[in-house]
Write a protein that binds this DNA or RNA. Structure first.
Length: 283
DNA sequence: AAGGGGGTCAACCGCAGACGT
DNA sequence: GACGTCTGCGGTTGACCCCCT
């Protein structure tokens, strides 16, 4: 099926936004909400396409956006989330309050990716690079890959739920959003179903996720992996973001399949250069 | 002081999925 | 179910800035 262009290309302004345009957009959304992005520019008196307005708002003008450089903790979180979620910037951004997917994508492409490469970690797989990497590990096994996929889907579902719970407090909540929550629930239901259970037991992993019963007023999420995985992921707080704590097992060679998860590989690489913020985990 | 090169980041593009009719 | 529209997402681009020579 054909797809109509998002806007007429002629007569519309492109490129950097002026302060006047920003003010018009903020003013309009404050008064009316964004409603339909397509019709917004006309109503707000802007010579921009709706897509451009949406981007400007979500990536720059939104009041809850945190400007300024990323803290070491945020950078660490981005790397850890990327190890689990891959290039799903929106899912990663959902876990880092005040940061946009665009910001995180830029951070990754300009800083973090290069840092990982410089210490011999493949930024895409989070595994040591084949030849020159300081660490040599076999590639993750198929079941580990499956585990990562499960974990990825579950994390995204929980991220959405936590986001929904905060959105429900907003007057602009829509039916569509509620439907998305149902979709997120779908993953969680699978995760907590027999299928999920058998999968978890197969991989010797215990996961508890109160988030699946998350209330509207607040979300608390906690996922505890067995020590074999040597890591724990925790969701925390009202805003639903999570932090990751790591504990190390002294008998790593007892660990078989689970020890080579992408996440594990990341946790294992030595702290050096600019990655010094990770050093605490190796003490 | 000039200009070349690399880094950064806001903005754009196009695709895919969700949704409405 | 088919079709048209809207929105969100990830990849890419290009303008701007800074540093080095």
């Amino acid at each position: 099926m054909g797809r109509a262009p998002c806007c007429e290309k002629t007569g519309l302004k492109r490129g950097p936004w002026t302060q006047e345009e920003d003010e018009l957009l903020i003013e309009y959304i404050k008064k009316n909400g964004h409603g339909s992005w397509r019709s917004l520019p006309k109503l707000a008196g802007l010579l921009r396409c709706g897509k451009s307005c949406r981007l400007r708002w979500t990536n720059y003008l939104r009041p809850d956006i945190k400007r300024g450089p990323f803290s070491p903790e945020e950078e660490k979180l981005v790397i850890q989330l990327h190890a689990i979620l891959g290039n799903r910037w929106a899912a990663i951004a959902a876990q880092i309050p005040g940061r946009t997917d665009n910001e995180i994508k830029n951070l990754w492409n300009t800083h973090l990716r290069k840092r990982l490469l410089s210490i011999g970690i493949d930024p895409q797989t989070h595994e040591p690079t084949a030849i020159s990497g300081p660490l040599k590990r076999p590639p993750a096994s198929p079941s580990t890959r499956h585990m990562a996929q499960w974990e990825s889907a579950r994390l995204e579902a929980e991220a959405r739920l936590s986001m929904e719970s905060s959105l429900l407090l907003s007057p602009s909540i829509t039916n569509k959003r509620i439907n998305n929550t149902a979709n997120a629930d779908y993953f969680l239901r699978i995760w907590h179903s027999e299928v999920g259970n058998s999968f978890r037991s197969m991989n010797k992993v215990v996961c508890s996720s109160p988030a699946s019963q998350a209330s509207v007023s607040g979300t608390t999420m906690e996922t505890v992996h067995k020590p074999e995985l040597e890591s724990e992921l925790k969701f925390e707080g009202k805003s639903g973001h999570f932090y990751t704590g790591i504990t190390h097992s002294s008998s790593s060679d007892e660990v078989e399949d689970s020890s080579d998860t992408a996440l594990q590989l990341f946790f294992d690489f030595p702290g050096q250069n600019d990655m010094s913020f990770l050093e605490a985990h190796f003490n």
